[in-house]
């Protein structure tokens, strides 16, 4: 059962024609049937064409499981994920994934990393480098084409991953906490870059995160998840003006949204923390 609260400002539109992505009643459990761990509990929401939606929830709420399901990396779940009207079964070319962990290929330089998906499609070197260069410029890495990932900062490497995903021109950009390992200032600046790219390409984007500031800074809508089992607690429209930059974080409206979402998340995060502590106590007792 979905726990969408009455205050939900946006109804789930799983049948809408302009949906780029629909998550329809998705349920996933791990472990044996006698002691199951329900990671995702009948979640439903949609992402419209050109929209930036963020799924936010406390650690351990099933966000990454949802990311893997939508990206087609995890099977054996109930419900349906659709790209347009097409149910997806495994990785779909319309969905481009950016991972939480650093995922550049260390043995390839920047341009070879970005051009990698084009290489797989058999596109000639000159053309793939030309197309890769466009996205390298877009993420602000012009001049670093020949550098190896080991010669770049964490933020730059993550931008390489984003450019590599964008080069395939996916309909939907799916990102799992791509800035989790970065400091707050870099995170805000990369947020600006993402907003700029999203607006330039009118890129439908689904971001999974636990970071409140990031979620409000970037999103048109935010799906708040409950802590275990992961359900939709609330979907909130973010009515902040676009084009948007990181300057928005100093506005009163921004603070209001952050406070509102934190109000929803506080209880879930507390449950998560209590759960972790109880596990730690049990583990310690077991020795």
């Amino acid at each position: 059962m979905t726990l969408a609260a009455p205050s939900t400002t946006h109804a789930v539109q799983s049948q809408s024609k302009d949906n780029a992505l629909t998550v329809d009643n998705v349920y996933k459990q791990f472990g044996a049937n006698d002691a199951p761990v329900i990671a995702v509990d009948h979640m439903s929401f949609d992402v419209r064409q050109g929209e930036f939606v963020t799924v936010i929830g406390p650690s351990g709420c099933g966000k990454s499981t949802l990311f893997s399901i939508i990206g087609g990396l995890m099977g054996d779940y109930q419900g349906q994920v659709r790209v347009g009207n097409e149910p997806i079964n495994g990785p779909h070319p319309a969905v481009g994934m950016v991972f939480q962990e650093e995922s550049t290929f260390p043995w390839r330089n920047v341009i070879e990393n970005v051009a990698f998906p084009l290489e797989l499609n058999g596109i000639g070197k000159a053309e793939r480098h030309e197309r890769a260069q466009h996205f390298i410029n877009m993420v602000g890495l012009a001049g670093f084409e020949k550098r190896l990932p080991s010669e770049l900062s964490g933020g730059m490497r993550q931008r390489v991953s984003i450019a590599r995903t964008l080069v395939s021109q996916p309909k939907i950009l799916l990102m799992d906490e791509p800035f989790a390992a970065l400091d707050e200032q870099t995170r805000l600046l990369l947020g600006d870059k993402i907003t700029q790219i999203q607006q330039e390409l009118n890129q439908t984007t689904l971001l999974i995160t636990h970071n409140l500031t990031e979620a409000v800074q970037l999103s048109d809508r935010i799906v708040v998840m409950t802590y275990r089992p992961g359900r939709v607690k609330r979907i909130i429209d973010i009515d902040l003006p676009r084009p948007r930059t990181s300057d928005v974080v100093s506005s009163a409206a921004f603070g209001k949204y952050v406070a509102e979402i934190w109000g929803d998340l506080r209880e879930e995060a507390s449950r998560g923390m209590a759960d972790s502590e109880s596990h730690a106590v049990k583990d310690a007792a077991r020795g």
Partner: peptide, 20 residues
């Protein structure tokens, strides 16, 4: 995560081996 990149790009077993 590198293998997941390969899977997300629908790489074949052979591509996965030689390229990742």
């Amino acid at each position: 995560v590198l293998l997941n990149v390969g899977k997300s790009l629908k790489m074949t077993q052979s591509q996965m081996f030689w390229k990742i």
